[in-house]
């Protein structure tokens, strides 16, 4: 176990390093410079800024500087938000996105799994069609439409929930629902397929031949075996969702991390973009690591 963890850690570090390196050089192939986009700055001013941030030095030198700072946990200053470090931006916005993401997951996970199981058990019946309908809807409705729709109904018409902003718990309800629906849809779909697959397994027949009740078979034989694909899905899903979503944060005016993923790239904010990529990468690698450990709890065959 200890050996495995060390090995995984090593691989993770290499993964992050590769990620950082490739993104670093790829980013610089984008045309333009970070200050050009800001119309107000004159050419000379732009040159000055480039020199100030060391962006005129040879690329390899910049890379080495960046990497050595990164190892110390310093991701540098944002090129757009004056006087703010990337670390501090992430520190203030990530908790907001993460809290929204966690709420959405806490809502979507139990409901999604339940609907998936119910749908598989009642295959071909009305319940199944309803669940499949929900999951198709959830996957295919873009979140900006769903978000605006929720705002229209609950904020504008019924006036029972705030329209936007991120302050009281009440404010979190609509964005949570908007985010949860698509997660729920995916979870329902995967759980349904996985349950159906498990239903035809021989050991389910064995369980039935023992005289167990239908619900007992579902509980103790099917669900646990059906969870493996869900875990696989859950790793990246959790990582992505906690990172924030651009559209939902935009619609509900939530000061989360999601917006920065888009803004920093369009604004060629090199350090910010790099910071987000590395942060995301670390998060993703960790999530997958946890999933790999969790597999073992669900399925003893892949226990490490």
């Amino acid at each position: 176990m200890a050996k495995y963890i060390v090995k995984r850690l090593l691989i993770s570090v290499i993964t992050i390093w590769l990620l950082a390196t490739i993104s670093f050089f790829l980013l610089r192939t984008l045309p333009g410079n970070p200050f050009q986009t800001n119309q107000i700055l004159s050419i000379e001013m732009q040159e000055k800024m480039m020199t100030y941030y060391g962006l005129n030095r040879p690329l390899l030198e910049q890379y080495i500087t960046y990497l050595s700072n990164l190892i110390r946990g310093d991701m540098g200053y944002s090129l757009k938000y004056t006087n703010r470090t990337v670390n501090s931006i992430i520190k203030t916005t990530f908790p907001i996105s993460a809290s929204l993401g966690l709420k959405a997951l806490a809502l979507a996970l139990p409901i999604g799994l339940f609907l998936g199981v119910a749908s598989a058990k009642k295959r071909g019946q009305a319940v199944d069609y309803a669940c499949v309908f929900i999951s198709v809807l959830g996957v295919s409705i873009p979140s900006f439409i769903l978000g605006s729709f929720l705002q229209y109904i609950f904020a504008l018409k019924l006036k029972i929930l705030p329209m936007a902003q991120w302050s009281t718990p009440l404010h979190t309800i609509l964005p949570t629902i908007a985010l949860a629906l698509s997660l729920l849809a995916t979870l329902t779909r995967v759980m349904r397929a996985s349950m159906l697959e498990v239903t035809t397994q021989d050991y389910v027949k064995t369980a039935k031949a023992k005289g167990l009740t239908e619900s007992k078979i579902t509980w103790s034989h099917q669900i646990r075996n059906a969870m493996v694909p869900i875990l696989t899905l859950l790793g990246p899903m959790v990582a992505t969702v906690l990172m924030g979503t651009f559209v939902i944060e935009k619609i509900f005016a939530i000061p989360g991390l999601g917006q920065h993923f888009v803004n920093s790239i369009t604004g060629l904010d090199y350090t910010m973009t790099m910071g987000l990529i590395v942060f995301y990468g670390i998060f993703m690698v960790t999530a997958n690591f946890i999933v790999d450990i969790a597999y073992g709890f669900v399925d003893p065959r892949i226990r490490i």
Binding site: D202, Y203, K205, T206, H221, N225, P300, R301
Partner: peptide, 8 residues
């Protein structure tokens, strides 16, 4: 190989 539940 398949008639026993692998997770129990």
């Amino acid at each position: 190989m398949t008639s026993l539940n692998p997770t129990m």
